[in-house]
Design a binder for these strands. Structure first.
Lengths: 346, 346
DNA sequence: GAACACTGTGCTATCGATTGCGCAGAAAAT
DNA sequence: ATTTTCTGCGCAATCGATAGCACAGTGTTC
């Protein structure tokens, strides 16, 4: 363990070139190298070309961390994800990586899963000086948000609208629920039910509210409400409860507030010998890939994931810019996707 | 835009405390603050307590980026994920976040999805001076690995064993395939088939090879091979092809080399009116949550995800430590989970 | 009572990149 | 021919944290 220090550039992991080392080799000052690489017009074309060549030759890449120190911007965006039981978070993550990269930012993965953020993770948020934080979790993540606020780090929630204070981008969940209710009613369904998600999530509650509103508007009785959760298993349990009901009381249409939930419901119903959509229509919301194909072919309201992440990053970047913008909530309309899990009017 | 500089601590986003500002307030030198907070025994208990109190009061957190500059370690681990069509990557990611945090590292999300890494992303790898890189992708990610190697950044592959050079942790996929074949053969299946994944992935090929080996060992004819892919849709297509076969030629057991694939196969078979496991047994490998419950109840070999990520981080950390360890490949045994998608011997 | 060993801190350089300021030398103007 | 104006680049400070070395002040020892 007490190896003699290796001669530079030999043996050990090749020491990475720095502005300093480039400067020495080019016979100029470090500041000149820095300016040349950043395209400062004050540096002559000749010198700039020489340094650029040297940089390419040595494979120089600037140390983003060192730059952060002086610029105050890390180029890092903290990402908080919900539980992976719901595939929608994975899809969001993939979208976020791509789009963040396209904008020159990197994602620092702070959390993925249930529950609040651990202390150590919360510290990372400040220790790594993230420029902003993207919280794509339907669950309460007030902890992360509070820490961001306390440190002047902009936050944008995606897929969750907080009661106050933070900026957010979400699908117009209320409208989605309402639209589905309207369609189901128009198709002649009379006993509607909703399987809710986590009660803490605005996504779930707004969808359920919208659904109830749509049902009321159609002059039907309020929907039966079944407590679901975040997973397929939760939906399955709710579906079993529904299937166990005596036929006259059994709903003829069920809205699972998220696609995984609806998938679980369908599976339970079918396993109980009921036909979907023959006996019961099932609809969901989210638009995840797995629900699109067989055996589900789930009729759903798809969230415009790409646009949601895009607008989320827009909001974040604008606030990172330092502008003292007011908090902003953006609601994007989902799009109804008619598939075959529900009887709907033509 | 030409605001007069705000008085410190007022108006603008509260300037974060630094060792310097703490030092001024405590009437000591910055180095003393640093040492006190790091628990250096040379600092008197009294001073240490005073500084600790001050740090707590002001909410001081060290700037990890600045520390990186001098320590040479960023505490960042690059993470490369496969396509989210396969839920196993999401599960791995969640596991990786948790375990990395527990070890005091953070994950820098470099890539998620298909295909090779874009240039910009590859640069991030060196710009942010990641200490190491965890590549949990069955697909070729040679690009990232090459860049890491060129920069002396340790790499560990999880869920993929490269042909050479890198360290890796994987499930013993060959053994998994072999075991499944043996069980299916023992249960009396005679015409076995395999639905393969992406041909570039060691995970897929090893499982298929193991399966073929197991079949040969049982004295049966080589399995029919159907080209699958990474998604449920690919499995579904393969399942349709299988279902379309005339009954005498149709396999009586199918191995989908990953669970999503097997799920797709099952869905297609059932949609074609075949019973699983009545007419055809279907087995998978991975052990994802979605395949566990209804309607799949997939018999599978579950990967020890937690252990895989754990060992992966072990290998990585050891190499980050600077020790010139040889490349290492760790194979972890999966565990057979008997559910109801296949007829198996008791 | 003086030389000694300690102990607790401060000073300063360092990591890599950036930036304000200043200073050469060349070109232009008078 | 001399002053003025640029153009092109170097110097040095800075960001925040850390570490080597030096140096006071106290306690110990002969």
């Amino acid at each position: 363990m007490d190896d003699a220090p290796l001669p530079p550039g030999q043996g050990g992991p090749a020491r990475r070139p720095t502005v300093g080392s480039l400067a020495r080799r080019a016979g100029v000052a470090a500041s000149t190298v820095s300016r040349a690489l950043r395209g400062d017009p004050r540096i002559s074309a000749e010198v700039r070309a020489r340094i650029a060549a040297l940089a390419a030759e040595t494979g120089y890449t600037p140390n983003a961390l060192a730059r952060t120190l002086v610029s105050g911007r890390s180029g890092l965006i903290g990402l908080v994800l919900g539980p992976m039981e719901n595939p929608v978070y994975a899809e969001m993550m993939q979208e976020a990586v791509t789009q963040a990269a396209a904008r020159g930012s990197r994602l620092l993965l702070l959390h993925a899963g249930h529950g609040p953020i651990e202390d150590a993770t919360a510290e990372a948020l400040t220790q790594y000086r993230v420029d902003g934080c993207l919280i794509t979790s339907a669950e309460l993540s007030s902890r992360a948000a509070a820490i961001c606020a306390a440190n002047g780090v902009p936050v944008v929630m995606v897929n969750r609208v907080p009661r106050q204070f933070e900026s957010a981008v979400a699908c117009d969940n209320h409208a989605a629920g309402e639209a589905l209710a309207g369609l189901l009613a128009a198709a002649g369904h009379r006993r509607l039910a909703v399987v809710t998600g986590n009660a803490d999530t605005s996504t779930s509650t707004r969808r359920a509210e919208g659904f109830a509103r749509g049902i009321a508007a159609a002059g039907l009785a309020a929907p039966a409400c079944f407590n679901g959760g975040a997973s397929h298993a939760a939906g399955y349990a709710a579906g079993q409860a529904i299937a166990a009901l005596p036929a006259p009381q059994r709903p003829d249409a069920v809205f699972g507030v998220s696609d995984v939930l609806a998938m679980g419901v369908m599976d339970a119903l079918r396993e109980a010998g009921l036909s979907v959509p023959g006996d019961i229509s099932v609809v969901g919301a989210d638009g995840i890939a797995l629900a699109a194909g067989p055996p589900y072919r789930l009729t759903t309201v798809a969230q415009p994931l790409q646009a949601m992440i895009g607008r989320g990053l827009d909001l974040l970047m604008a606030r990172i810019g330092g502008a003292a913008l007011p908090q902003e909530v953006v609601l994007l309309r989902g799009t109804l996707i008619r598939r075959h899990s529900a009887r709907l009017p033509a």
